[in-house]
Design a protein around this nucleic acid. Structure first.
Lengths: 239, 239
DNA sequence: AATAACTGTGTCTGGCGGACACTGTTCGCT
DNA sequence: AGCGAACAGTGTCCGCCAGACACAGTTATT
């Protein structure tokens, strides 16, 4: 497994290609990753298998192993392929606007590729794009009196929030699909056990959809960050 | 799959047992779930298979299917088995203390069973204990001028943060294991591409470990919630 | 032209989730 | 008391999966 990390690093960060002797490769990492993304988009990450991806490209499963050391690396490539570039910082905009745009774009990305939620659990090597997203948050918070660790922590905080919301959205998404049953089942269960979950039952009984969960949490986080920043900039060395 | 949701609801919420005719069952859902938890704790969620769990109990894999409709339901049971009861609210304590304790306990839980992070992705039916955790947050925020949807959103926000931190902790945990390589690889990669990720490189170059990521994010979130609450209680109807 | 490196394929193994038929056990009913 | 239904555990089977390996065809270097 220690070698696998190096393989992944080489795939994600290494040179794009190397001219060699034998016959020219008929495939490319990009095409393979795109095929994997297509499978995952339509049938979910669980449906991504070597043979299915290979079949989509009219190749045998084993040919993929000439390009990719294993399935984990294939999924890492898929993540990098599906991730968009983080939004460029609008010149001179406030950090708050930058982070708001960042969060919305990331949420959109998760919405387009729900399987990203499954693919980005567990220890893994981040790719260039994934790191670029992180970079944007840290950069937006530069020069406001936060330490490096604090800037990183803020990034993790924001990313975690967007992730959590994306998962909630996915679990309750389409109205005609089985996921709707889960939501209905949850409602009836809570209502049926209202004695054990009084606060929950009360909260769910109130009208008003929670379509603003992303913005609600985002506003709280940014308020909290603003409070810290203003504390730091008022008394710069009062740590 | 629509039936699977009902099966899971029945397993998690239904009556504990029902006396029937045939021979007495030699197993129980509790024992099966505990065996599954043991496998997942020691070898990870990926190592949980029907035969492995059955083997741990000295049974055949097929006997498990007499108790559990499928693997998904087994994992749902494992989650409910591994989750501890949420901390009881200390009488008269501030909501902020309650939520702080809640977050720390949940983080501890994730630390004890890292596979919970893998097992709780994707749409699923929450069990009684999982719902109890949610209930605690909503209850702690009761009576402070927040709407029901806002209380739920706050719960999702907190849970997402703890989750995100738990994932980061797991990815960087033991120093002698392959995960440490990932962290080292990340460091060298960022350092090697410092031109593309200047803010990241600068932040990582600063001293100071980020062992307080949980508390940092928690403090920001609670500050943000406090600001909202004070706004609401000052002018109760100023929505 | 010869050789070495490389690509794509076919075959094989071990493990997985799960369907199904089967034997043996135990309880409720007559 | 005994019969039959319902149930527990097992063995066998299928399809799918990731991946190891040997092999044939192709191409650039020598």
């Amino acid at each position: 497994m220690g070698e696998a990390a190096n393989d992944t690093v080489r795939l994600l960060w290494g040179p794009p290609a190397k001219p060699t002797r034998g016959p020219k490769p008929a495939l490319s990492l990009e095409r393979i990753a795109a095929a994997g993304v297509e499978v995952a988009d339509t049938e979910g990450l669980g449906a991504v298998s070597m043979q299915k991806v290979a079949g989509l490209l009219d190749f045998t499963k084993m040919s993929l192993y000439r390009y990719v050391p294993g399935k984990a690396e294939l999924i890492a490539l898929m993540v990098e392929s599906a991730l968009e570039e983080p939004p460029a910082p609008t010149a001179g905009s406030h950090w708050r606007e930058q982070l708001t745009a960042w969060a919305h774009h990331l949420a959109q990305c998760f919405g387009r590729h729900p399987w990203l939620l499954d693919a980005t659990v567990g220890p893994r090597v981040p790719g260039p794009k994934e790191l670029a997203w992180l970079e944007r948050v840290v950069a937006a918070l530069d020069g406001h009196g936060l330490t490096g660790a604090e800037r990183m922590d803020a990034a993790v905080l924001l990313a975690g929030h967007v992730r959590g919301i994306a998962e909630q959205v996915r679990a309750t998404r389409p109205n005609g699909s089985p996921e709707a049953e889960l939501r209905a089942a949850l409602g009836t269960v809570v209502h049926h056990h209202a004695d054990r979950y009084p606060a929950l039952a009360a909260a769910m009984a109130e009208p008003g959809g929670h379509d603003q969960a992303l913005d609600f949490g985002l506003a709280r986080i940014l308020d909290g960050l603003a409070a810290l920043i203003s504390r730091r900039t008022e008394r710069p060395q009062a740590r």
